[in-house]
Design a protein around this nucleic acid. Sequence first.
DNA 1: GGCCTATATAGGCATCCTACGATAGAAATG
DNA 2: CATTTCTATCGTAGGATGCCTATATAGGCC
Lengths: 104, 104
Amino acid sequence: MTRNVTTDAIRLKALGHPVRLGIALSLAAEPETCACDFAEAFDVSQPTVSEHLRVLREAGLVTTKRRGTQICYSLDPEAVRTLERLLGALRVTRTRSRTLARTP
Amino acid sequence: MTRNVTTDAIRLKALGHPVRLGIALSLAAEPETCACDFAEAFDVSQPTVSEHLRVLREAGLVTTKRRGTQICYSLDPEAVRTLERLLGALRVTRTRSRTLARTP
DNA sequence: GGCCTATATAGGCATCCTACGATAGAAATG
DNA sequence: CATTTCTATCGTAGGATGCCTATATAGGCC
């Protein structure tokens, strides 16, 4: 129950950027995508993509695999599952506090 | 399918802070909590809590209801559901691109 | 109105983010 | 080894974030 709020927050923050979220969604549909494919897809420079990938990597959201000169990125399914569980914990479990319910 | 990536990113970013994520988790367990209860719970000043609540509010993650002098916050179940769907979209749908699979 | 409680806003300051161009590193290829 | 390709890192500038104290605002109560 006492989940690691800090780790979760780091991962949510990592996904909390349009480019990085777009990269993650793209990786869900197409695993093992090379870094070079993202620069053109999201209209940012190569160093910027590399930086965003670094954030995702350090958050533990993606894994890498070198394939020749290029480096392929994939989503870490375990990390995604962890976030899904977190979102599940955000589902409201009670409709209203009984103490507050008495107050008009 | 062309979901609003920007809105999703804003919400993920809003949750991507330990205090705000803590507030959200707290609200899931105890809806309609007054703002004043968070300051002591998270060991930050009242204006800081107010600022964090503003971020959650502007992200559409929480709703407010005035009760006398105090303002009670609740999670917006619809926003949570939206994020759950987003996380679902992050589940890897294919194991490997066939094109890439041929490359050693 | 005057006072109290709860919340929001303003101002200030330090830190972090994000973008870029330039450059360095790593692997394949000639 | 030299070159090419792909990726990462460096350096930096502008803006955003997060925290505080001080102050303003809103509602209830006497």
